[in-house]
Amino acid sequence: EEAIQNFKALLSDMVRSSDVSWSDTRRTLRKDHRWESGSLLEREEKEKLFNEHIEALTK
């Protein structure tokens, strides 16, 4: 649960536009030290959280 919250915070800070792809964003996020705290999450979970974040940005 904490890993999810940390990853959501990372997305909020780093992803402000809804027209970015997961693969491009992932490359950028990996450069942030907080990426490692999400290592407990599966890749699919990270992508799902990313997609939810993008959906929220479009509303």
Rank of each mutant, 00 (worst) to 15 (best):
S37Q: 14
T28S: 13
S12P: 03
W35H: 06
E44P: 09
E42W: 02
R27H: 15
R16G: 07
S21I: 03
K48Y: 04
K8W: 00
S18H: 13
S39Y: 08
N6D: 09
T28D: 12
E2A: 07
H33W: 14
K46A: 15
W22F: 07
A56V: 09
S17T: 13
E2V: 08
R43I: 15
W35R: 07
Q5S: 09
L29V: 02
S37G: 11
E47I: 09
S39F: 11
S37V: 10
K8F: 01
R34Y: 01
I4R: 13
L49F: 03
D32W: 00
A9V: 03
A9Y: 05
K48T: 08
L40G: 14
E55C: 08
F7Y: 03
S12H: 12
E52S: 06
N6R: 10
L40T: 14
E2C: 03
R43Q: 15
E55G: 09
T58P: 06
L41M: 06
V20E: 08
I4D: 03
R27N: 12
E2M: 04
L11C: 01
V15C: 03
A3G: 07
Q5W: 03
G38A: 15
V20S: 11
M14E: 08
T58K: 15
R43P: 15
K31V: 05
S17E: 09
W35F: 05
A9R: 10
V20F: 02
V20L: 09
H33T: 05
S12G: 09
T25R: 00
H53S: 01
T25N: 01
D32M: 07
R43Y: 14
I4F: 06
R34F: 00
F50Y: 06
R16P: 10
L40F: 05
A9H: 11
I54F: 00
L11M: 01
L11P: 04
W22K: 07
E1C: 11
R16V: 11
M14L: 14
T28H: 12
E44R: 10
R16C: 09
R43E: 15
R34E: 03
H53E: 01
L41W: 02
N51D: 11
K48P: 03
L40C: 13
D24I: 01
F50H: 09
F50M: 03
N51G: 07
D19G: 07
R26L: 15
S21E: 08
E55S: 13
N6C: 06
F50V: 01
E2R: 11
E55M: 10
W35T: 06
E1S: 08
D13K: 07
V20A: 13
I54K: 08
K8P: 00
D24V: 07
L40H: 12
A56T: 13
L41I: 12
T58R: 14
H33Q: 15
E52V: 02
K46G: 14
L29T: 04
W35D: 09
L57D: 05
S23G: 07
L41S: 06
H53W: 00
V15P: 01
K59C: 13
G38W: 05
N6F: 00
S39E: 12
L41R: 04
R26V: 15
I4E: 07
W35C: 05
R26S: 15
T28K: 14
E44C: 09
F7M: 01
L11F: 00
K8M: 06
V20I: 08
L57E: 13
R16F: 06
R26T: 11
S39R: 13
E1D: 01
S21C: 08
F50W: 02
N6L: 07
E42S: 15
L40M: 10
A56R: 12
S18E: 09
K46L: 09
T58A: 12
S37M: 12
R43K: 15
I4Q: 07
I54G: 04
D24E: 14
F7I: 03
K31M: 11
D13F: 02
V15T: 03
T25A: 15
V20G: 06
D19I: 00
S12N: 14
E2H: 02
E42K: 15
E52M: 08
S18T: 14
D19S: 08
K48M: 10
A9Q: 11
I54V: 13
L40N: 13
L40S: 14
K46P: 07
K46N: 00
W22T: 02
S23M: 08
A56Q: 13
K31E: 11
A3L: 06
D13T: 04
E2Q: 09
M14I: 12
K8Q: 06
E2F: 03
V20T: 11
F50D: 03
L49V: 02
N51I: 07
I4V: 10
S39W: 10
L40R: 13
L10P: 04
A56L: 11
V20W: 03
S18D: 12
A3I: 11
L10Q: 04
K8V: 04
F7K: 07
R43V: 15
K46C: 11
S12W: 05
S23E: 15
S18I: 10
K48R: 14
S17G: 05
F7S: 05
S12L: 12
M14Y: 15
E2L: 09
S21K: 11
V15M: 00
T58Y: 01
T28L: 14
S12Q: 12
R30V: 13
R34Q: 04
L49G: 02
K59H: 15
S18Y: 07
I54R: 09
R16W: 02
T25W: 07
T28E: 15
Q5C: 10
S21H: 05
G38M: 14
E52D: 11
L49I: 09
L11K: 07
D19H: 08
E42Q: 14
L10W: 04
L41D: 07
E44W: 09
R26Q: 15
H33D: 04
S17M: 05
E55Y: 09
H33Y: 09
L11R: 02
R43F: 13
L49A: 05
R16A: 09
E47Q: 08
A9F: 05
L57K: 04
K59G: 10
R30D: 07
L10C: 00
A3N: 10
W35A: 05
L49R: 01
A56F: 12
T25Y: 10
V15Q: 00
F7E: 01
K31S: 10
D32E: 02
L29C: 04
L11E: 06
K8I: 04
S17A: 05
N51W: 04
S12R: 14
L29A: 02
S12E: 14
D13I: 04
S18C: 10
V15E: 02
K59S: 11
H53I: 00
A3W: 02
S23R: 10
S23Q: 15
E1R: 06
R34A: 04
R26N: 13
E47A: 05
I54W: 01
V20N: 02
L41C: 03
V15A: 01
F50L: 00
I54S: 08
W22D: 03
E47C: 00
K8T: 01
N6I: 06
S21R: 08
E55I: 08
S18M: 05
N51C: 02
V15I: 09
V15W: 00
S23C: 05
F7T: 05
S12C: 09
E1V: 06
L10N: 04
E47M: 02
D24A: 11
S12T: 13
V15S: 02
K46I: 04
L11Q: 05
G38Y: 10
H53K: 01
V15D: 01
S17N: 12
L29M: 10
D24H: 02
S17C: 10
V15R: 00
R34H: 01
L49M: 10
E52G: 04
S21P: 07
N51S: 09
L41Q: 05
E1I: 11
D32L: 05
D13V: 03
K48V: 08
Q5M: 12
T25L: 14
A56Y: 09
D24R: 02
V15N: 00
K8C: 03
S21D: 09
E42L: 12
K59F: 03
S23K: 12
D32K: 05
S39L: 11
I54H: 04
R16M: 09
K31A: 11
N51T: 07
S18F: 05
S17P: 01
K59N: 08
